[in-house]
Design a protein around this nucleic acid. Structure first.
Lengths: 345, 345
DNA sequence: TCACCAAACTAATTTGAATTAGATCATTGA
DNA sequence: TCAATGATCTAATTCAAATTAGTTTGGTGA
């Protein structure tokens, strides 16, 4: 009592060798012609002793740890109100659960810079995992190149241009989705639109803008304004301005900004969507906290995380090219802030 | 290139034995009289090859990996709106960063039951980590006993009664904090109070209730109602009822319920805190999303997580008794929903 | 009666790092 | 001059399981 039983303990109890125990426990009796009676003795002994394989020994022999690294070059759980990675992490966890893998969160933060370097103090911390899912916008291409050179496999969540050759990535069809939205807006009769983006231009935002520009150009819609703002910078006056410019629809990149727009709209006494249609271009994490049933895009972050885990395992098993990448489809949420413009312009 | 270097590769490059490499890498050169020059050669070779220890081999041998396990017997990132573990995980991550440890999130879920068993399919996956922080309310005492028997160390976040002998726990002083609140309520002149709890009675809730009962009994306050409800079950009629019963103050266990109360209060046109004081007994994760500046308790979840990591390391170093436990103090947030009752009863 | 074959098993090795028990060599004291 | 000592390093073993390369035994065919 107190000491875990080993295969050798089972072997002793069943009167066979450790080899036979291993074969029986792994269902290879047929391949090696182990007697059914012997097998039964072994199984009984294993049950009696409460045998549990030592995953560590198994992993040592097999070369895999069943550990998937998750790295973001920054803290995964920010101290701020909402975690950017939240939904993606949920997906990664679900993917790991399904695949029977555990997750390693690398916390090794460079105290001075506040950034996490993979190669810290000459050591590659990530290598304790079989492979890794890399999140975030930070590029650190040099480190990733070095990792890939060493034979370490990883996949990205989010589009990668420069690092695309190093490993697969999973992203979302932002451009196509935003283009689809512009055509919906056009179909309802809107001809003049405005676009409100975040000044901080990370990858997915560039793609959204591309979709917007392509769509509005193709459909011959007038772009009244393309504004880049930070939090708290957009108010009633800006809305007044774009509406004076004739805009009847407004595309808003971030969910936080949607609520700022809502305040401005309320202040101006504007009817939504009668006077102005407003469409969000990102997911709304907590719809119950939203002021409106916004018409918006649903970015499949959870699916992206789960798919990234699957992809990583495929790469590790040699079933997938490291240059492969996938774009998941965004869903359109009709909501109630998009409608036909009050009067045709 | 492409293959992960082993100690033996370093040994070959430096012209020494694998033993010497192991000694040098583990800083035991002084104990075994390894030449400083030889040590330097080994360190250089290790850096050149990009050596990273194989944690599996190390774990098999019984060494430490600077890995802390996190396990909850259920998904850590729930699919629901708010993560119960969120703040605790933030604390654990911070604690790990400070201590230079990485985290392994053990995801092992039993597909059929939806619950995580440590000994799922015979694998004790936790063993890759040096020890673990166990979260959640699920008890699974049998598995924990078995783990402890095997010499695996862990600490709990949240009070444990039955499993208290297995490892230390970190919890919060819920009872004392709620008792303190009842005395504040009493001091303001309230004599009749009501308590609104979640029907789902997990550990911390029991303690809150205990604090409430002790406090109100000592102070001679009348308990108008002690109601256990689920989400969406409390409305204006219930509030009307307790106020008709003379209650001038209402203690509410969960933050979600606070907002339900807010709606009922608005519906009835009740003045808060003039007609009714309302006090929350849990943290409010996102104050900007709250309808009021609620008077409430701040549960130090982040500190609990960080302290749990510290405690685990102390236990692993043999500097702490496995039977030790700690209760962290909750903070009182004055807010603006607690005041003197309108008229003395 | 003996070579041959399959059935039923086992000894030995492997995995990577840590540790125990030596080994080698030069130097020192008597 | 020879044992004793210390400095430096290594061979061998250990951890638990999986796998490779056999070994033993009994039976069959010629």
């Amino acid at each position: 009592m107190g000491v875990r039983p080993r295969q050798r303990d089972i072997a002793k109890l069943a009167g066979v060798s450790q080899t036979t125990v291993s074969l029986a426990l792994n269902g290879k009796t047929a391949d090696y012609g182990i007697n059914a009676e012997t097998e039964q003795k072994i199984m009984d002994a294993a049950r009696e002793l409460g045998y549990v394989p030592n995953i560590t020994a198994r992993a040592l022999r097999g070369g895999r740890n069943r550990l998937i690294g998750v790295h973001a070059f920054e803290p995964l759980f920010p101290t701020g109100r909402e975690s950017y990675y939240g939904e993606i992490l949920v997906g990664i966890e679900q993917g790991a659960i399904v695949a029977g893998q555990d997750l390693v969160l690398f916390t090794s933060i460079h105290q001075h810079t506040g950034q996490a370097n993979i190669f810290h103090e000459g050591r590659n911390r990530l290598r304790i995992a079989d492979g890794a899912v890399i999140l975030g916008f930070e590029q650190h291409d040099d480190e990733l190149v070095r990792l890939a050179d060493e034979g370490f496999r990883f996949v990205f969540v989010g589009r990668r241009e420069r690092a695309a050759a190093l490993g697969p990535y999973v992203s979302a069809e932002y451009a196509a989705a935003v283009r689809d939205i512009t055509s919906r807006v056009h179909a309802l009769g809107h001809r003049k639109v405005a676009y409100l983006g975040l000044r901080d231009r990370a990858e997915p935002r560039v793609e959204r803008l591309e979709g917007f520009r392509t769509g509005s150009a193709e459909l011959g819609m007038t772009v009244v304004a393309e504004t880049w703002a930070g939090a708290g910078e957009v108010g009633a006056s800006w809305i007044r301005q774009v509406m004076d410019g004739g805009a009847t629809a407004l595309l808003v990149e971030s969910t936080g900004m949607l609520e700022e727009v809502a305040e401005g709209v309320a202040e101006l006494g504007i009817n939504m969507p009668g006077d102005l249609s407003v469409i969000g271009l990102d997911s709304i994490t907590d719809p119950s906290a939203a002021s409106h049933d916004w018409t918006h895009l649903l970015v499949p972050r959870r699916e992206m995380g789960a798919r990234a885990v699957e992809l990583l395992l495929e790469v590790l098993d040699g079933h997938q090219e490291p240059t492969h990448h996938e774009l998941l489809t965004c869903t359109f949420w009709p909501g109630s802030t998009l409608g036909a413009p009050a009067q045709e312009v």
